[in-house]
Write a protein that binds this DNA or RNA. Structure first.
Lengths: 192, 192
DNA sequence: AGTAGATGAATGGTTATTCATTAACTTCAT
DNA sequence: ATGAAGTTAATGAATAACCATTCATCTACT
């Protein structure tokens, strides 16, 4: 049932998906949904939490240093994040950031905490790359946002049918990001 | 009045903004809005068209070669797009892509045509940079998407209060993009 | 006299949610 | 094994709110 709701939210958006839509797709009447969820918001919360977990879980271990070269750590983040992003694709009416407003303050906080965890991890990896001199000093926050932005927005424009594959795309973003990192602040870098 | 509606759409989102909201902010009753617009959708259309015009107009002349070095052309696009993106900021509930679904097919086509114009311009500039050997061969479409994505998503996370200024940010994105372009495909590049 | 701007009231639709009720299935003591 | 009791899943009907839109009417200005 969560599965059904998630699909509908992604296809039509949260506000445009009615309880009647969900129940019909599930094969029951609207009233029955309330035997499983207390209200519509709880369904949204579960959908968002699930998605965020899927993004974070495969890269959680990068919180601690693991010996892998920072560029490889970065590649892992990009690959994993991109694959989750493009897995429940179809269309992308439910945009993560927008949907947050339909959550209660408590639930919103929980989701934002997860997003913060993601931010923390990618920033740690970028910082490690600076320390190991894989790339020069750079604004870690901004760099993190840039990389996440490139990945997140694939949901809007990516269509698997024609053109590049997910793996190609992952590779492209990785190289683009890596060289974006390497270039920025080059002057200071050369001085070392 | 368009001005009012635009602000509300960005603050609360299109679906969550009622005609009553708009009329109250304007200082009249809901019925009166229909003396200026045929329906709610027309308001949305005007808001989106206006925004798209503001993005395209300052870079329209880059459709034709203008003698400026391609990196400078790119800087212009980024600067200009970023400034429009962050001008009606506050919050960002109305996401461009999502709102398209609330448009009639004809109006949606008009907006998408404008988006295509933007894509065409940025791709032309990137292609020029390849021809002038400012950066190596690269997938022009993907590169264009990456750059636009970095800019578009600033709306979500950027807050002017603390941290970088819009100009700093513009500079950062420009450098990040420029080096992203330069790096990708380096092997083939070095061979020239 | 005519027109543009404004309004109150009504309409028709949609929506999330509640509630009392029913049906099916489980548990468990006898 | 049987029947009672309880639990879970499901439902139809009703509620209350909200919302875009229409229309006949009214006002003020040209």
């Amino acid at each position: 049932m969560l599965h059904i709701a998630r699909r509908l939210f992604w296809e039509k958006g949260y506000l445009s998906t009615s309880m009647a839509d969900i129940s019909k797709a599930y094969g029951c009447r609207p009233a029955n949904i309330y035997n499983f969820f207390s209200d519509k918001e709880e369904i949204l919360f579960e959908v968002l939490r699930e998605e965020m977990d899927q993004i974070i879980h495969p890269i959680q271990h990068l919180e601690e240093e693991n010996g892998l070269p920072p560029p490889e750590q970065l590649r892992l983040i990009i690959e994993s994040h991109l694959k989750v992003t493009l897995s429940y694709r179809r269309s992308a009416k439910l945009l993560f950031d927008v949907a947050l407003d339909n959550l209660s303050p408590e639930n919103r906080k929980k989701i934002i905490d997860l997003r913060d965890t993601y931010d923390r991890i990618i920033r740690k990896v970028i910082r490690r790359g600076i320390e190991s001199q894989d790339w020069p000093e750079i604004d870690v926050k901004l760099a993190g946002f840039m990389i996440a932005s490139m990945i997140t927005r694939t949901r809007i424009w990516f269509h698997p049918k024609k053109g590049v594959s997910v793996n190609d795309l992952s590779d492209f973003i990785f190289k683009f990001a890596l060289n974006g990192l390497k270039g920025e602040g080059r002057k200071r870098w050369r001085r070392l």
